[in-house]
Structure formats: structure tokens, C-alpha cells
Simulated scan of single mutants.
Amino acid sequence: MPEIAHIAHWPYGTVFSLDGVTPQIAADAFIAPTAAIIGDVVIGAETGIWFHCLVRGDMGIIRIGARTNIQDGTVVHIDSGGLDTFIGDDVTVGHNAVIHACTLKNRAFVGIGATVLDGAVIEAGGMLGAGGLLTPGKVIGANELWTGSPAKLRRVMDEEERRRFDRNAVVYRDLAKRFRAGLKVVV
């Protein structure tokens, strides 16, 4: 992990220490001004946590990898029974998603308004479509596309199809750089 920005000098978002545990945020990450990061959270390089997101590591740990984007209005939390949340590298989490006590491996994709619940796993390159509900303990395999509520397997994507979705992580990585460098409060 790259150098961690010291909390006192963090220019964005609201970052809270809880019970003496302070979030660790890569110096080149972007945390939107209205996002809240609390407790035992680690956020990797070039990751973007967008407007009105809540990342709450109050009863366990949350780890978010590099070049990941957690889009506007998303809630990331853990389970009071000991299930933590792990989000890998190059992951896309769409607007208004709920990520709760689960694992999203590298290149996972969670669509707008989708929910991933306790103990569920999205393997590398797996996708949960917009509005989907991945119920506790379910596993989306590598490159599988699941949709619906509750979510069910629709098909396995070939590499070409899946690569088209990888563009989203690159776009959001670049957007995070732009916002980090150019976002200014005007009122």
C-alpha cells in the first residue's frame, strides 16, 4: 500500500477515528466531501469513494483495494457477528448499492441499486446486475452474470464481454484523479 495520508491533513470527506482506530487512506485516493469513513477501514491507491457514501468499520474491518470505485450513495458495512467486508482491486460498485459483510474479489462489478449480503462472495470478474439481491452465503463465480431479486445465474460472460465492463474502473480511476486535483468549494 502506498503512503497513507495523515488524518489531520486529509482534504476530503469526513474521516472519523472510533475507539482509537483511525481509517488508513492511500494518499492518492479520492474521498468525496460528503462521504463518511469510520473506524477500522483501509482504502487503497487511486480508489474513489464518492458523494454520500458511508463506509462504517465500527464492529469489524473493511478493506478496499486499489483503483476501486464505490459510487454515490453506497453503504459499506460489516456484520456484528464477526463477518468483515473485503473489496478487491479494480472493483466497481454502482450508485446506491449496499455492500454488507461480504467479499468482492478483484474486478467484481455490482450494479446500481444492488445489494450484497452477509457472507456472499463475488469472485473475480463476477457481476451482480442493477437492482440485484445477492442473498447471504451465495457465490457468484468468476465471470458469471447474476440478476434479479433474489439473484440467479443468467450466463457466464466470455472474456471479451467481461472486458467491456473493466472500462468502468479505468474511467472512475481517472475521474477520481480529476476530482482530487480540481474539486473546489465555492460557497
Rank of each mutant, 00 (worst) to 15 (best):
I4C: 12
I4D: 06
H6D: 15
I7C: 03
A8W: 15
W10E: 07
A26Q: 14
A27M: 09
D28I: 15
I31V: 00
A35M: 00
A36E: 15
I37A: 08
V41Q: 01
V42D: 13
V42K: 12
F51N: 01
C53G: 04
L54F: 08
N69G: 05
N69V: 05
D72K: 01
G73F: 13
T74K: 00
H77P: 06
H77M: 11
I78L: 05
I78Q: 06
T85R: 04
D90S: 12
V91A: 04
V91N: 01
V91R: 04
A97W: 09
T103S: 05
V116A: 03
L117H: 09
L117T: 01
G119I: 14
A120R: 12
I122Q: 02
M127V: 15
L133Q: 01
G137K: 07
K138A: 14
G141S: 11
A142D: 14
W146M: 03
G148C: 09
G148T: 08
S149G: 02
L153E: 11
R155C: 11
M157N: 11
E161Y: 04
R162I: 11
R162P: 10
F165G: 02
D166P: 10
N168L: 10
N168C: 10
A169Y: 08
V170T: 14
R173C: 05
F179G: 01
L183D: 02
V187W: 06
